[in-house]
Amino acid sequence: MNDKREDLVEKLTSHGYIKTEKVKKAMGSVPREKFMPPETRPYAYLDRPLPIGEGQTISAPHMVAIIAEKLDLCEGMNILEIGTGFGYNAAVVSEIIGSNGHVYTVERIPSLAEKARKNLENTGFGDQVTVIIGDGTLGYPDKAPYDRIYGTASAPQIPEPLKKQLKIGGKLIIPMGSHNYYQELVSVLRISEDDFKFQDLGGVAFVPMIGKHGWPKD
């Protein structure tokens, strides 16, 4: 799998998805196959989303790279992730911010949260990533404010609790738009207590973010 991971990282770099050495190093170090169900592990280094159960997916590697690059991560940061899945995104971010930083990640589906905890423990990220079961649209105020917040599912609009839990000068990246898997990736920079700067980063396709400030559960 190491050779396939190297090949994928080189492909993502040549196509411009990976732009910095820190993201390249992280994606070359974190074994994506360890964050997938056994039946899909042979396809771990195809650049596409794959099912992980409960109607959820692991994001395509190029999308993981895009979000990591746009977050502009630095060592020691305090990070909030909404939508843990099997823990892959959190592991990549944790690899970049290092042991002095921490990722708090909220997952609404208990079975996925438990699997993510095991995956993170087994790959050496257990002390750097905390998995919380809950409504991600409410954020996680216990460890706020955050340097960076990002979502791995799409919301109809940016949840207000996430904006409030962002540090002044901090950045939030989240897919926003329709429920039908086609949205816009939006970057939000907190300028002051009440002022935010918004930037459209382009079209994406994510599963819906379910919760009080997201989409209703079917």
Rank of each mutant, 00 (worst) to 15 (best):
P141Y: 03
S192D: 09
F206Y: 15
N89M: 13
M176Y: 10
I52T: 09
I210L: 09
E193H: 09
Y17R: 03
K212W: 05
S192F: 08
E121H: 14
D135Y: 09
K22L: 12
K171C: 10
M27H: 08
G202Q: 08
H102V: 02
I191V: 15
S94N: 05
M36R: 03
A44P: 07
E95K: 14
D200P: 05
P51T: 08
I191M: 10
A144F: 05
G169C: 13
A116K: 02
V30N: 07
G83D: 05
K70Q: 14
I132V: 15
R41G: 01
N122G: 10
Q56H: 11
I52L: 11
G203A: 14
P42E: 10
G170A: 06
A153H: 03
E75D: 12
F86M: 14
S99K: 13
D47I: 01
G83V: 11
I66C: 00
E6T: 07
D142A: 06
K163T: 13
L80K: 07
L50S: 04
I18F: 00
M1W: 03
L162G: 13
P145R: 11
V30F: 00
N89L: 05
K143D: 03
K24D: 04
N119K: 01
G28P: 05
T105G: 09
A26D: 12
P37T: 06
A68R: 00
D7A: 11
D127E: 14
A60M: 07
F86L: 15
E121C: 11
E6R: 06
M63K: 01
K19T: 07
E39P: 00
A155W: 01
I158V: 15
K34T: 00
F196L: 09
Y45G: 01
P31G: 12
R48E: 15
G98Y: 02
V103K: 04
P161G: 11
I174V: 14
I79C: 02
E39A: 14
P175E: 08
M63H: 00
S111K: 09
M63Y: 06
F196H: 13
A113M: 02
V207R: 04
V131K: 01
N78W: 03
A155N: 07
P110L: 10
L8E: 02
K70N: 09
A65L: 02
S111Q: 01
G98R: 04
I158W: 08
E121K: 12
P51S: 07
K118C: 00
G101P: 08
